[in-house]
Each structure stands twice: as C-alpha cells, then as structure tokens.
Design a protein around this nucleic acid. Structure first.
Length: 408
DNA sequence: GGAATAGAGCCACTTAAGGG
DNA sequence: CCCTTAAGTGGCTCTATTCC
C-alpha cells in the first residue's frame, strides 16, 4: 500500500469467458435488492452508500417500502459488484475516509440492463429471484445461482434424467444437486421423484411371466396368504407389500414383505426398485424433468441473459433493453423490494435466544429428528441443536440412521 | 448525521456415514 | 452403484456499535 495517497480508484475486470460472466451476473441479481441497486440506483456519477440509499428513497415511499440500511448497499458493491468488474470504487482519504461508487463501462453494458431485466422478470412472475437461485453464501468452489442455472440448462436439454446424471453433467456433489432439486420442485420448476431411504413401499416386485402358480411353496408357513399374494401379483404384475396389504385387506404388510421375498427366492417375482414406476431392475432410483414453468424460465430469462453476455451484444433482444420511464422505474423498484422482503433471511432473522427457546418449545413432550425440527422451525437448526446439546439442555440419541433430539 | 467496523444469523458447500 | 441423512465449515449480508 502506498501511503499519503489522497484518492484511490479500485476496479476489476469483467470476466472474458461467457460461463464466468453468467456466474458473475447471476450472483449479482439473485436478490431484488441487488438488482435494484445495479439496475436503477447506480449510474455514471460517484455515489456514497448514503447517496445510493437516498436514490432509492427518491423512487419509492420509504414508509411503505423497507429500504435496506446504507451499509447493505455498500456490502453489495464491495462483495459483489466490484469483484466482478461492474462497479468501481473511489476512496478519498481524509480524517474520515469516504468511499464512492459508480458503474464501470461493462457495468453499464451488461450489469445494468440485465439487472433491470431480472427485476422485471421477478415482478412479472411474482417470484423473487432469491427463491429460484438461492443465496450466494457458500464456502465451496461454486455458488448456488450458477449451479441452479447449470441444472436448469441440463434439464432443458434432456428429459427424464436421474440425479446422478445431473451430478455428472454439472460437476456438483449429489447432496447439492438434491438440495437444489428440492428447491426447484418447491417452486414448481421441476418434477422430481426419488426413492426414500426409509419410506416403505419403494421396493417393488414384478411377476415373472410364464410361471405356474401350482408350483408355489408356502412362505412363512402361510399357505393361504402366499397363494393370495401370488395370485394378486400375477394379476397386477407389479406391486409392493403395502399396496398388497391394502388390496388384500391384510393387516401386516411385514408378512407380505416376507412372502414377496420368499417368492423372489423361488423365482416367481423379481425386484423392481423405485417407487411407483416401472424401471429396469436396480437401475433407476430417481427421476427429474423440467416443468413447463421451468422451461419458460429458461427460455424467457436464462437464455436471453446468456446471449446478452456476448461481447457483440447489441441489444437486439427487446426484453433486455434499458428503459427509463420514471413511473415504471418506481413500480419495479417497489415490487422488487416487497418481493425480496418476504423471503430475505435478514428480515426474518431472530436472536439466538429466541431461536433456542423456540426449539425447546418444539421439543416439549416429544423427541424429534433434526429434519422434523427443521420442518417445524422453517429452517436449518443444526447450529442451535449443536449448542443446545453442548450446553446440556437437550440430548441426542441415535437409532439406526436416525438421530433423535429431546429435552434433557 | 454519516462514515467505518464489529458481531451475528443463516445459507449452501463439503465431508462422513449408512442403506438397498 | 445410487441415494439419503447428519454434521462440520466458511462466507455473504444484515444489525448494532463506535467514532468523528
């Protein structure tokens, strides 16, 4: 660092590579606050964090809209826009050093129009980009928004993929692919089904053609039930113990499960894995397809954005053209603020004490698994559980693969 | 009042382990 | 092999505090 410099400009290069550009830009529009900042609040003039916030106030009513703290605007610039080369910073040293921000040339060419486009897309679909792309906070090599885009592009190319196909194509860990698929399923962008490790009934059996019912030996000393099960299997061709128990009005599906496995040993049926669907035995344990809604998002948002990131992009795609109607600007900023406000983790954030006492309340009179507590709580509670266990307020016990938590 | 800094919450990635 | 669950880790982004 050079001392006694009064004025210092900090700016980086916008990525050259298209994929890197997509990653950069999606991380800049994954929340409406960022899109508003990049698309409408920043421009050619140097602005302090408070200037940026004041610009927001000039567009929308601060009473009916929650406008972020000025520090948040600074954080967007420092953590997101400057690293990707969309914004430059000017630092003036003095008794109080002050930072100013403005768009770079690439920020104007790519960042601003795409941010505006994102905001309009979110408003038109009535869906915050945050619900689609998730957060950029992650300790790993890749970040959620770009990973989501990769998954959607793959699904758009080919139908009926397995989870592991996406793992291979996108270069992500299977747990991450699964996590993203669950989110995408939640907002209706994909159909996703997979075996459940614990849920019964996903292990199915198929009747092997041409077998003679006469030759069946009773399983578990239950000749009548064995016959009934075999007959039903021949009729249904594919079924499982729970379904058969229901149809045969028999109370114990576990008995039927034993019979099915006995019939398998005798060569009358074979296992077909996967819930409710007919697949080749042992091959398929999950199935993912993009829905119409997801496909529309790809063609109406991701593809235009990708094309607009080309070097020679000249604005031929109408939807990405900058617009400067002040009343529309106010409308989209206001819509963006309210869309994100509802899903933003920051505004829903509670103190640790509050969170911990709520968990203790949930665990009153019952022992639950972490995922059940997550569900009751509405978010990941791992960190609180760990601390509550350490402080001795709750205890955990393992039963097979499940871990149960209860009051100590 | 308005700037920077410190602290904390929460999320997604990584790692580990288990089951059919 | 393919998938699920749990636990550990690190970073973004918000709020609270401090400083002039």
């Amino acid at each position: 660092m050079v001392k006694n410099v009064e004025r210092e400009i900090i700016s980086r290069e916008f990525p050259k590579n298209l994929e890197e550009r997509l990653e950069a830009i999606l991380s800049s529009v994954n929340t409406e606050y960022k899109s508003v900042t990049l698309g409408f609040l920043l421009d050619d003039s140097w602005k302090t964090k408070s200037d940026i916030r004041n610009t927001a106030e000039s567009y929308v009513n601060p009473v009916t809209n929650i406008i972020p703290n000025a520090n948040s605007f600074k954080a967007y610039c420092i953590s997101t826009f400057i690293p990707i080369g969309a914004v430059a910073e000017e630092r003036i040293r003095g008794r109080i050093p002050v930072s100013y921000y403005k768009l770079t040339e690439d920020g104007k060419k790519y960042g601003k129009p795409i941010a505006q486009f994102s905001l309009r897309t979110a408003a038109d679909k009535n869906l915050s980009m945050y619900e689609i792309f998730g957060s950029t906070n992650s300790p790993g090599k890749t970040r959620s928004p770009f990973n989501i885009a990769k998954i959607l592009f793959e699904l758009e190319k080919e139908d009926n993929l397995r989870q592991v196909d996406l793992v291979n194509e996108c270069g992500l860990a299977n747990v991450n692919v699964r996590q993203h698929l669950l989110r995408l399923k939640n907002i209706g962008f994909v159909d996703y089904d997979s075996v459940s490790g614990e849920e019964s009934g996903w292990s199915k059996y198929e009747w092997i053609k041409g077998k003679n019912l006469e030759n069946i030996k009773p399983v578990c000393k239950l000749p009548t039930l064995t016959k009934k099960v075999a007959n039903k299997m021949k009729e249904l061709r594919i079924s499982d113990c729970n379904e058969l128990a229901k149809i045969l009005d028999y109370k114990y599906s576990a008995h039927i499960s034993k019979i099915l496995s006995g019939l398998e040993k005798q060569g009358f049926v074979k296992k077909v894995k996967f819930k409710g669907k007919e697949f080749k035995a042992g091959e398929k344990k999950s199935e993912v397809s993009i829905t119409e809604k997801g496909r529309k998002f790809v063609s109406e948002f991701l593809e235009p954005v990708y094309l607009a990131l080309e070097d020679d992009f000249d604005g031929i795609y109408q939807e990405i053209e900058i617009f400067d109607d002040p009343s529309l600007t106010s409308y989209y900023i206001s819509r963006g603020f309210s869309l994100y406000k509802n899903v933003c983790p920051g505004y829903k954030r509670k103190s640790k004490e509050e969170n911990e006492s709520r968990i203790l309340q949930i665990l009153k009179n019952q022992k639950l698994r972490k995922k059940e507590i997550d569900e009751a709580f509405g978010k990941d509670v791992a960190i609180y559980l760990k601390e509550l266990v350490e402080s001795g307020e709750i205890k955990k016990e393992r039963e097979g693969s499940a871990v149960y938590y209860s009051l100590a």
